[in-house]
Design a protein around this nucleic acid. Structure first.
Lengths: 173, 173, 173, 173
DNA sequence: AATGAATGAGGGTTCATTCAT
DNA sequence: AATGAATGAACCCTCATTCAT
């Protein structure tokens, strides 16, 4: 990946995340990246190709967050790690996470499949801990972390930690 | 409001909710409403005016959902009504609710202020029930119901009821 | 002519004169006149009909200015009256005169034909006074007064009187 | 400047001059120039930018006409050159000059400032020649050449030369 | 790899005008 | 006489994309 390619991805990520996919023109991206507009299409074929490249390039960030949960065997630890997941997000990656949410609603491109393994791990953990409806418990907990992520990215200053403490208590952690 | 005005609002709501604001052209709205494109601008001035009109017109739906919670005095009932709130949504209003979420992410127009009274009622209820951090408890619960709403509108078939049952149990309801 | 008709003509005159014909929409006229847009078309059929009505209605203003020159028999008086013609214009009629110039250039609707009798009178006067090329002398003088009128209407504050004095002297008046 | 850019300017000049600014749509310009409409905006940003480009590009024509007058030291020559100025205009530039007049009235964009140096030169010349009100004499003469220019561009066939001869005689040239 | 000219379809919006009331 | 809803064509302009260099 050349230097200009990186510049493009970076500029596009920032713009897509802040202003939205449709509201960001390829010319705006080119200008922000200090690059000719044609170059975007040379490298990524499409505007869609561009956003896909961003998503791919960022997948490692998703995985690094998830792998630690999925690999965990102690069920209590699985819950704890899931609940505190959002605190592990590097603020420099906020744009990327914001983009995930934006795309879900604007283009109905859902990153939910990526969460599937986490959900399985959670369901398994709840099962081991004797919860009666482990699948639904897992779903419920995932809804929560999505909510907390959402409020982290949109809200100006949410007291994330306090909420997480509450949640930990609810699951006896 | 003339018949054509209603047609416009209706078509726009459906399209904005399904395809998004930017992805829906005014000409598409006009076509779907069986109306000349100019008429949209005569009545609503702008594309933005159009979406605002939709939001205003739907405000009653928001309020009718919230008022029952806010007016409740029994704290346990406040929690119960909040948690089961999403079950009260008329499926014919799904488009409107979907639009709320889409706009939050696509245009960063947040309907959160509308939830403020609910949050206050919740905080008050948690306080009465002896919870230690009523404000954060309220915030947490709101994140939950937003999550449930979100999954209800996007997910193909979520088992809403089971999750709600779980949640009720967590709050001893 | 009803009261509303007058309002329309008045508003249209002012707007056409200040902003130009094409730059003035019929809706702007209607709004300025405090009248429904349809009414303009009921009374004047067209936007063009509207401007024509204004022109017709103002023709008396043209004639009243010219008649005094055309009826004059003393050749020197003809010249003098022509040269001082612009001083006779009522400032409340400036819009109308401005419109004349604007239309000449914007729509190439020329009010020059209206000047024809004046030109004849001038040519005749120059002839009587022994000028060698009375026709061209007449044309020249008309160019002058058009220029003075133009500068009177566009320029912020031209010293009209001084120029007129100079001109009178050039013709030994 | 690419070939297509020149085509655009050329077509726009001709259309603006003949039909007026507002009456000429950008699509008409594009069609006349044999160019896609978008290209106009790529190069000139705006319709306004387009007309400004035309004006700028033609400024040399203005200057070349004026410089000869302004640099002249012999006062009589200054007058003579001013009076005969319009005869120096290349008929292939008529469109450009017509545009100057049109814009003055349609958009109230006045090229008068460009004439300022000429006016100064004239005032100076009149002063040297012992005229009593050199400033007003200058103004008067400028009004004349504007008038003759105007009639040259609008009138079908004006006998320009005869009028110029008359005028020269009036100033003893 | 990189540019920038060029395109054509479509964007939101305004326009003059008509029509039912 | 007067309104205001309604229209469809045209408006200026932006878009994603292609192509020659």
């Amino acid at each position: 990946m050349t230097e200009k390619q990186e510049k493009i991805l970076q500029a596009a990520l920032q713009l897509f995340a802040c202003e939205g996919y449709h509201a960001t023109s390829t010319s705006k991206v080119a200008k922000a990246a200090g690059v000719s507009e044609g170059l975007i299409f040379r490298h990524y074929k499409n505007k869609e190709g561009l956003v896909m490249a961003i998503l791919e390039e960022g997948e490692s960030r998703l995985k690094s967050l998830f792998v630690d949960i999925v690999m965990e065997t102690d069920p209590k630890e699985v819950l704890r790690k899931t609940i505190t997941m959002t605190t592990k997000i590097d603020p420099s990656d906020y744009d990327f996470w914001k983009l995930q949410f934006k795309l879900k609603w604007e283009l109905e491109i859902s990153g939910d499949k990526k969460m599937e393994p986490v959900k399985m791990a959670l369901a398994n953990a709840f099962h081991k801990l004797g919860y009666q409806l482990p699948g639904s418990e897992a779903k419920l907990l995932i809804l929560f972390i999505e909510g907390i992520g959402s409020s982290l990215l949109t809200g100006p200053e949410t007291n994330q930690d306090e909420i997480i403490q509450l949640l930990l208590k609810k699951y006896d952690l």
